[in-house]
Design a protein around this nucleic acid. Structure first.
Length: 280
DNA sequence: CTTATTCCCTGATTGC
DNA sequence: TGCAATCAGGGAATAA
């Protein structure tokens, strides 16, 4: 699933290639009417044709194509979305759902097996993203922020890490990996996280995201970069998709449980269970 | 405001 | 071996 490192890898590649180019064409597959949510295909084309891509930004897992200061294409890959930079003569890509033609003859291809991805053309990206928490690799993310964001909350820390309003960009893979690194059980009530634990969690989140970015992200089944290349961080997962395999710290078998409808993997020895008060 | 659940979608995996 | 049921999890919508 594309999470922060994967979307940021795409953003960097797109921001290297696209600024200064004009949008010359747009095409949408009729089998994915839910992709473009705020316009018809014809309205979209009228609004973007001839506009210049000024930069490509990211907020949480949203990938944002800026078309000047007053218009932005805000996209989300959800689970199986892919963005490729191709030439029209390149071989076809599977599950192509939309295309943008560009003034240098290249094209942006949007592919998505499961059709969960979205495009929204708006003046201000926040109309689409809503409130988004601090970027974990930005300057306003800290152990203090984790303490403030968790106080008084009884939801499991794993669920809080997935809440984009609290911290931006984490998904199931990196939330599990960061909690393992910090030796915190995913079911721990968020409000019970201590300051030393918040420091460990802060360091773990930054570390796992930086390491994944350095590896070009994680490719399990669907993620590829704009050139169609896979990332390599899946080779370094400590818990994700490793249930039954030995923990690299203590050799205990990694276990999987369900938290808030999502799989959660952890080491039952390194990440101790929430404290249960004695009855009565 | 909070937290939990269901839904969307389809290929891969699991179970019988 | 086949075929149906289950799984995967982004965020939106809904419920309480």
């Amino acid at each position: 699933m594309p999470e922060l490192p994967e979307v940021e890898t795409l953003r960097r590649q797109l921001d290297d290639a696209l600024p200064g180019l004009l949008v010359t064409d747009a095409w949408f597959s009729p089998d994915t009417p839910q992709l473009l949510r705020r316009q018809t295909a014809a309205e979209f084309l009228d609004l973007v044709r001839g506009r210049t891509i000024t930069r490509v930004r990211r907020s949480a897992k949203w990938l944002i194509f800026c078309l000047g200061d007053d218009l932005a294409l805000v996209t989300h890959l959800r689970m199986t979305g892919r963005v490729f930079l191709r030439r029209p003569t390149d071989p076809a890509d599977l599950y192509l759902r939309a295309k943008l033609g560009l003034s240098n003859g290249s094209e942006v291809r949007w592919c998505d097996v499961r059709k969960f991805g979205t495009w929204d053309l708006v003046a201000d990206p926040r109309e689409v993203t809503g409130p988004v928490g601090p970027e974990p690799l930005g300057t306003d993310f800290s152990a203090d922020h984790i303490m403030a964001a968790t106080r008084g909350r009884r939801t499991p820390i794993k669920s809080l890490l997935l809440d984009q309003r609290r911290i931006a960009g984490l998904g199931n893979i990196y939330a599990d990996e960061a909690l393992w690194d910090a030796r915190i059980h995913p079911l721990r009530p968020a409000g019970s996280i201590t300051r030393p634990e918040a420091r460990r969690l802060h360091a773990a989140i930054v570390s796992v995201l930086v390491d994944s970015l350095d590896s070009g992200g994680s490719s399990m089944r669907d993620y590829l970069d704009t050139n169609g290349r896979a990332g390599r961080f899946q080779e370094r997962w400590s818990v994700y998709k490793r249930e039954g395999l030995p923990c690299s710290r203590c050799a205990a078998p990694i276990v999987k449980t369900i938290i808030a409808g999502r799989g959660a993997r952890y080491c039952p020895r390194c990440q101790r269970k929430p404290h249960k008060p004695p009855n009565a």
